[in-house]
């Protein structure tokens, strides 16, 4: 460990960002990501209206992930990763 590292606080010692700061830093990116998801679902819907419904487990997983986004519980990123993981 060099001298610089020794004087730096560990990650655990870093003060958490305030809620306001989190929104300041990440709201626009999250807003854009939500629009991307909405537009992708619209695209899928238009395709299904034109060419018939698609039976694909990726669609089911995506809907499950959207439920996780909307629920009140935390740990969302890990739970969504598990939805998109191969089971077993």
């Amino acid at each position: 460990m060099n001298r610089h590292d020794a004087t730096e606080p560990t990650d655990a010692a870093v003060e958490p960002l305030s809620g306001g700061r989190v929104l300041e830093l990440y709201f626009l990116k999250a807003r854009a990501a939500s629009l991307d998801i909405a537009a992708m679902l619209d695209r899928l819907s238009r395709a299904e209206q034109s060419l018939g419904p698609v039976n694909d487990e990726r669609k089911v997983r995506l809907k499950s992930a959207l439920h996780v986004l909307a629920d009140e519980a935390g740990d969302k990123a890990r739970r969504i990763q598990e939805i998109f993981s191969i089971k077993g």
Binding site: A32, L35, D36, A39, D42, R46
Partner: peptide, 15 residues
């Protein structure tokens, strides 16, 4: 992309 459209969404709007 962060504040306006993305390539994908722009093409959606054209369609």
């Amino acid at each position: 992309p962060t504040t306006k459209a993305t390539p994908e969404r722009a093409v959606d709007m054209i369609e």
